[in-house]
Design a protein around this nucleic acid. Structure first.
Lengths: 245, 245
DNA sequence: GGTTTGATGTCGATT
DNA sequence: AATCGACGTCAAACC
């Protein structure tokens, strides 16, 4: 298939569709199918979907997506593995698209009794600009202007290791007391507070009494439950928005 | 468009593509586009993608997905709102597909300078069998056979409310001591242990000394760090797999 | 509508 | 290559 070609196939027989699909995938193309199919997935959660007209996508990296008429996610979780198998079921005459590891488990199987449209084309792989407004952006902002967290704060390290995991920012307060900073780009929930508490406890054990660290949660906001938990654990909060662009 | 029809349009002009897309969406159809486009998203995290040949899907519910050649997720987060706007840019001649709330923020904008293929068809909305192997399935299993967690355990309530949130299963041990059970369908990590610890602490405060509750994490397994945290908090673990089918 | 949590996917670090 | 830990994102249940 030439690089720029877009191929389409209307109402092929399953045998013809199988050949079209196999050829295109072998050539590294991106393929879509429209037709009535059943979907069965045996991944982390098992799911079965009765026969209905759906839109399926097979990407050259082995990704298989089957979409219904609504929602952002496909009908099934994505199986591990990057192999796609395309065959015609001898008994039922169905076109069978199977994705996942060859071993029985963790498979996604779509069975088309009819294919009304098959398309194949190339899609560009392209470097994409890094997203902005991430936790990494928030970290940069805090490192550049630590006073946003509290006056006199001096960052000492990022990703400092503790037995409970790496802390986002390890710093020293104006009075010299160690401070653990946990960053969240979204409003922080109870999990974020527990995570910070784990880090503070682990660091306190690590320093074995030399100095007792404080913990500060830095996020654009906190949920009520998280706010209460902060108080319970004697942790602080500073409202900082992640920078956008 | 008749229910069963599948329409395709090759290399339309932007004006023609706009009409095709608008007509199909107005009729509740599912539409796909293949062509070179830029993608800009201003949702929670901002992203920009330079012009490249991509595969776009517009669902009748307002979902817009733009996919590259690999990976399960689209190139962009899905904006809030269910409005899709299709127009031709007077200055550049591009076909512009914009999704999200009409107000400027939180928008996804894809700009096609060429459309090589447009397709439109109906996709069935269909009830889907409930997935199995979920946390709800694990809960059923534990309620039916509480001895899987520990001998003599008697479940008293599910979703029992505490100041920290609802506990999965509230139970009584053989000796009458209250037990908080936290269920995870996957191997449990540190977050699960912290969540359980929050519930146990909250319940202990709720019972204010009448009885001191124990906590049991029920999951197919625990990660090393979670195992250590369990010990730190004096919590127990029981290995139980969620039932599959 | 906001909050919370389950369910997934992805990535980086580590083994 | 597999595992683990953390982050990002979506969806559903419940006020």
């Amino acid at each position: 298939m030439p690089d720029e070609a877009v191929e389409t196939l209307r109402t092929p027989t399953p045998t013809r569709a199988r050949a079209f699909l196999a050829d295109a995938l072998r050539g590294g193309a991106y393929v879509t199918l429209v037709g009535a199919c059943t979907v069965e997935s045996r991944t982390r959660t098992s799911r079965e979907h009765p026969r209905a007209r759906r839109h399926a996508t097979c990407k050259p990296d082995g990704t298989v997506l089957v979409h219904g008429p609504s929602g952002h996610r496909p009908l099934h979780p994505q199986p591990d593995g990057d192999r796609v198998d395309v065959r015609v079921d001898d008994d039922t005459g169905e076109l069978v698209v199977a994705a996942g590891p060859p071993s029985g488990a963790d498979q996604l199987v779509a069975r088309f009794d009819t294919v009304e449209l098959a398309t194949a084309f190339d899609v560009d792989d392209h470097e994409t600009d890094a997203p902005s407004g991430t936790e990494a952006d928030l970290k940069e902002r805090v490192l550049e202007r630590p006073a946003l967290v509290e006056p006199g704060l001096r960052p000492l390290a990022t990703e400092r290791d503790t037995p409970a995991g790496p802390v986002d920012v390890y710093a020293e307060a104006a009075d010299g007391q160690p401070v653990v900073v946990e960053l969240k780009r979204d409003r922080a929930g109870p999990d974020a507070v527990s995570q910070l508490a784990r880090y503070v406890d682990a660091l306190a054990a690590d320093l074995h009494g030399d100095a007792s660290p404080r913990g500060v949660l830095v996020a654009p906001g906190v949920t009520p439950r998280a706010r209460r938990l902060l108080g319970d654990h004697g942790l602080d909060f500073a409202a900082v928005d992640p920078p956008r662009d």
